[in-house]
């Protein structure tokens, strides 16, 4: 099976050394996506089976349950902003124009506005992360 030779599977996500920061964002987008899916399906079942008949909202109990919701909020914020960046990059709005390959071979499609968007996403994420942690500390009663 020749095509399996280069197959790293899910372990390939952990290989970040030597890759650009976009690889880190790609992995984070996938992990956060899977996390949100798990919450989403559990939330639909929870609301449907517990809230709809009794009109009482069930929330995960204890400090671990609250911590899960706090982490979920952070994950959703990251996934949203990075997702907007990915849509813009996909349709070429933030990707630089291609250029003739002359020494020193700087990739305009990866640097410039595209890279700026990555830093912007990280900056917005860190700012909201800060405020969210402030809210979470009140929520957790620390």
């Amino acid at each position: 099976m020749g095509r399996r030779e280069n197959k790293l599977g899910i372990l390939g996500w952990l290989k970040l050394k030597g890759y650009s920061i976009e690889k880190l964002m790609y992995v984070a987008q996938r992990i956060s996506g899977v996390g949100i899916i798990i919450f989403l399906l559990a939330h639909i079942l929870n609301v449907g089976l517990v809230y709809a008949p009794t009109k009482e909202l069930w929330e995960p109990p204890g400090i671990i349950g609250k911590a899960v919701l706090v982490i979920l909020g952070i994950i959703v914020v990251f996934h949203t902003f990075n997702g907007v960046r990915l849509i813009l990059a996909e349709y070429g709005f933030i990707v630089g124009k291609p250029r003739r390959a002359v020494y020193p071979y700087k990739m305009t499609s990866l640097s410039g506005r595209q890279r700026l968007a990555v830093y912007l996403v990280l900056a917005v994420f860190i700012i909201i992360f800060y405020f969210w942690i402030m809210v979470a500390f009140n929520l957790l009663g620390w």
């Binding site: 095509r3 599977g9 899910i10 996938r30 996506g33 899977v34 949100i36 899916i37 989403l40 399906l41």
Partner: peptide
């Protein structure tokens, strides 16, 4: 959600 999961799984199991 389902398309996102599909993209991940299709990449992992080509």
């Amino acid at each position: 959600a389902m398309n996102g999961l599909r993209v991940i799984l299709v990449e992992l199991f080509p």
